[in-house]
Amino acid sequence: MKYVIPLLILAITIVAAVKKVPLYDGFVGGVKKAFPLVVKIFPYVLTVLIMCEVMEQSGLSGIITNVLSPVFGIFGIPKELIKLVLVKPFSGSGSLAVLSETLSTFGADSYIGRCASVIFGSSETTFYVGAVYFASCKKKNLVKPIIISLVSTFISTVFAVFICKIM
């Protein structure tokens, strides 16, 4: 697995060179988009992290986790992951913040850390897709698609915590 990324980078670079793409200018062109992207998501990341911190320190986080953990427990989802599972459909940048928190708290290679990584990497911000993709549509019959997407995401979350146990 550790060869995937190096080979990918190598392959992309070679293909680009063969296609006569100016490599330096191209790379710089991509990097130029990085800072604006961070600037764009930064206020959201910051606000969600403030929310997390206040929730944690007030003890609200513990209460919500305790209330929901039996429900999530039925499906085998550890209570440490509840926050991530709840935030992910609403906010991509927010859940990125929660992922980073989870990885630092429990360790990136722990079972919880690996589960969190898989859940984050395999799901999408459902309501963002609804808002952005279909913003210009006149007819918005989005209730069914939203339910279908949330159910599918939940099924894959259950699958993720299971697969992380055996892989």
Partner: peptide, 22 residues
């Protein structure tokens, strides 16, 4: 992480599950 790639295959499988379900 000492093995940051460990999650690649599980992630791929799990995203496949969600897309197929969808």
């Amino acid at each position: 992480s000492v093995s940051s790639y460990d999650i690649v295959l599980p992630t791929l499988l799990s995203t496949l599950v969600s897309t197929v379900c969808g």
